[in-house]
Amino acid sequence: MTRQKRSRHGLKRAVAPYLYLSPSLLIIGLLMLLPMVTVISYSFQNSAVLRLDSSFAGLKHYQAIFADPVFWASLWHTLYFTCMSVVFHMTIGMIFALMLNSDRINPTLRNILRVLYILPWLFTAVIIAVIWRLLLEPNGVVNSILMQLGLIGSKIEWFSSPETALHAVTFANIWAGYPLFMVSLLAGLQGIPKDFYEAADIDGAKAYQKLIFITIPQLMPIIISISLLDFIWTMQVFPLIWITTGGGPIYSTEVLSTYTYKLAFSSYNLSQASASAVVILLISLGLTLLYIRYQKAR
């Protein structure tokens, strides 16, 4: 190879990765980073999107949102919905993973159950919403079973009474989301070296001691990273709530995403909606930074 040829080859090698990455970077830059800048600038304008000559509004829209009790209610509902979901996803996922991992069950049964336990995860949020609306109809099957068991005296309107609506949507979301934890924890359980348990057996450890001192510490990295991801994704919930309750009754299930959507596309206050969208973005970014730092530290 002549020197000239080699340097041309070297140049090619230096430029090549950027060329391979360019379509992706173009799309992410134009359709993700630029819109993020746009939505921030909308939030500081009067009548954004709707008028071309929109004027600077300062912090007006942020003040309007922070003065709105519905915004604070939405924030609280989002937190309740998300925390309950993550905690129960983790608990149910852990219990199911431990049960499936037990050597007391026959391997064929284990495989069949594993496939069936994952099923709720396969359904689209809209379909989950429709299924739970049918189940929790006042004349539906859940009420009729609970009444037959004598647990409730009269039919409960799960999604349409303000006392139960938020719990009902949270429950539906818990049902739909635990398999992510289950699958990840099951993979984690299979990665714990068997000699840890054998050593504990020799020391005469009880089952619960092995769980607390071996299993849970070994699974901790998975628990933390899945919890963070689940938290970020659950916080962004929209279709499930939109289809089951639409945020009602009387704002009792309003969450940040439905609040923002209504501001934008029901009252066409796109500036104020942008301010609310920026608040959601900031919360997400904060949690994402936490997630990335945690992943890097590992």
Partner: peptide
């Protein structure tokens, strides 16, 4: 820039769809 691009791509996964919806609607 490989490391920072990789971090950028990881972090874009968690951007809330509702945040991008309004500028997308405008576009």
């Amino acid at each position: 820039g490989k490391g920072s691009l990789n971090t950028l791509i990881i972090s874009t996964q968690t951007i809330p769809p509702i945040t991008l919806l309004i500028p997308f609607f405008g576009l």
